[in-house]
């Protein structure tokens, strides 16, 4: 079983996001990390490796700095690393990004793709299902538990009436939510080995994707709208006053 895991290197969720001109200022980001849900996807793939000998290939698409995501993935057990080098990811729309990632998945011949339900920067949730469409695969999103059943996977996902366990066979994409699995941490040996692990780089030309001319273009990124300061009240005695305001001022109850 070959599993490709899509990992994106993003500003850590604890990092302050500031704007310079009309873009998020990447140079001021204090810490970069693998996007949180991608870590759960990687963890699930590594668990499959332990239980059924899957080969795990981590794929990232991004500038030179994102090589660190691949090293971090190797340190916890990823077998092979692929870097699609793109200097300015923000300039590419969903068609381009998905084309690149689907191209790399095809190139390595993986029938199974694990990724995050959404990236911590874009918050989109487009890439898993989009890549599935491009490689002709089924897709299950928001997976919070997974187990292999030989030919395919049993996956727990939310449903409007609660949750449901679904079965899906390869080729498939599974986009992960937070799972109940504890994330493994690298040990010294893992970190040393990861430093030496070769990284296969793929460029857009070889993947057959023309990265110029995105149909969707980001005009600007900006700070969130300022919220005017709220009204402050002191002590539980003020609760009834607030309730009155919710009724008469906000009109929400």
């Amino acid at each position: 079983m070959d599993i490709a895991v899509l990992i994106k290197y993003v500003p850590d969720t604890t990092a302050k996001i500031s704007i310079n001109g009309d873009r998020v200022d990447e140079s001021s980001v204090s810490k970069w990390s693998i996007s949180p849900f991608d870590e759960y996807a990687l963890e699930a793939a590594l668990a499959m490796k332990e239980s059924s000998g899957a080969k795990v290939t981590a794929i990232t698409c991004g500038p030179t700095r994102s090589e660190k995501a691949l090293r971090d993935a190797a340190a916890v057990g990823a077998d092979a690393l692929v870097h699609i080098i793109i200097d300015d990811l923000v300039a590419l729309d969903s068609t381009k990004i998905q084309g690149l990632l689907a191209g790399a998945v095809k190139q390595i011949g993986a029938q199974i793709v694990f990724c995050g339900k959404q990236a911590a920067d874009t918050n989109s949730g487009s890439t898993g299902p989009g890549v599935a469409e491009l490689i002709g695969a089924a897709c299950v999103t928001n997976a919070s538990e997974i187990s292999s059943d030989g030919d395919g996977f049993n996956v727990l996902r939310p449903a409007s009436s609660g949750s449901e366990r679904v079965n899906v066979g390869a080729p498939c994409v599974v986009a992960f939510d937070k799972t109940t699995s504890e994330l493994r941490r690298p040990n010294v040996k893992g970190i040393m080995m990861a430093k030496k692990k070769p990284i296969e780089s793929m460029d857009s030309g070889a993947l057959g994707v023309d990265v110029s001319g995105s149909a969707a273009i980001i005009n600007s990124q900006s700070p969130p709208p300022e919220k005017s300061p709220g009204q402050m009240f002191d002590g539980a005695d003020s609760v009834s006053e607030v309730v009155q305001k919710l009724r008469n001022e906000a009109k929400v109850i």
């Binding site: 969903s94 920067d121 918050n123 989109s124 980001i218 600007s220 990124q221 700070p223």
Partner: peptide, 29 residues
Amino acid sequence: PVIQDATGISSGLTISRPIYSGKAMEEVS
């Protein structure tokens, strides 16, 4: 292209949406 989670749309077509979990906004055309 797909643009997810639009909180504003104006003709053109220009779409605004939160990114970084609401720590910033983005306008896409």
